[in-house]
């Protein structure tokens, strides 16, 4: 049944309108909603070398043990959420197979693998005005000396909880709001970014 459903973002009734207006111009700062990715919550003991090694082998990249950091392989991005908690982001629809592989490999190792795909949507903000746009509503120090590509944070944007992930120096950010907050976050961001698109 599930594969007959169409995955769409949480802010589509706005994003489609924006596309038809031909927005996202100006100095090249762009805001877009991406197809909601597969999401897996992974918990386990970072002090258990079997856990770290097994997960690393399945994912094809090292589990990020440093706070607020991200690692990635071809088909998965791993965001540090807490000292024993990670978010695995996969292409849409590929989360189920990865969960099965993780559970089989982990066996009796103390860990939890949970499908949280419906939890968050993904917005992408990119371009010269992206950092200033976020700074209007986020108390994190986003200066390049404090927050760089490959870093992530769970924080507040305009009082709504998000996961923020900096992709590159453009700067490009991926913003993961809760699905029920995605329209609100979209509206706030599209207002905040407007001055950089004129």
């Amino acid at each position: 049944m599930a594969d007959t459903l169409i995955r769409q973002g949480g802010a589509t009734r706005f994003t489609q309108a924006v596309a038809s207006l031909g927005a996202n111009t100006g100095n090249g700062t762009r805001l877009a909603e991406l197809t909601p990715p597969g999401q897996i919550n992974l918990r386990g003991r970072p002090s258990d070398p079997r856990f770290v090694r097994t997960v690393g082998a399945v994912l094809g990249c090292v589990l990020p043990l440093n706070a607020n950091t991200v690692t990635s392989a071809a088909e998965v991005t791993v965001l540090w959420l807490g000292p024993d908690e990670w978010l695995l982001v996969t292409p849409a629809g590929e989360e189920t197979a990865l969960i099965a592989r993780l559970r089989e490999a982990l066996g009796d190792i103390h860990a939890a693998v949970t499908d949280v795909t419906g939890n968050r949507t993904r917005l992408r903000l990119s371009g010269p005005g992206a950092r200033e746009t976020l700074m209007k509503g986020c108390s994190l120090d986003l200066h390049p000396r404090g927050f760089r590509p490959g870093q992530c944070a769970q924080t507040l944007l305009a009082r709504g909880g998000i996961i923020l992930h900096q992709i590159d120096d453009a700067p490009t950010y991926d913003i993961y709001p809760r699905r029920s907050f995605s329209e609100y976050t979209w509206m706030w961001l599209s207002d905040a970014v407007a001055e950089y698109q004129r």
Partner: peptide, 11 residues
């Protein structure tokens, strides 16, 4: 002590 390894890498 159990959570120390991650803590050592925290800022």
């Amino acid at each position: 002590a159990e959570t120390a390894p991650a803590a050592e890498q925290a800022p």
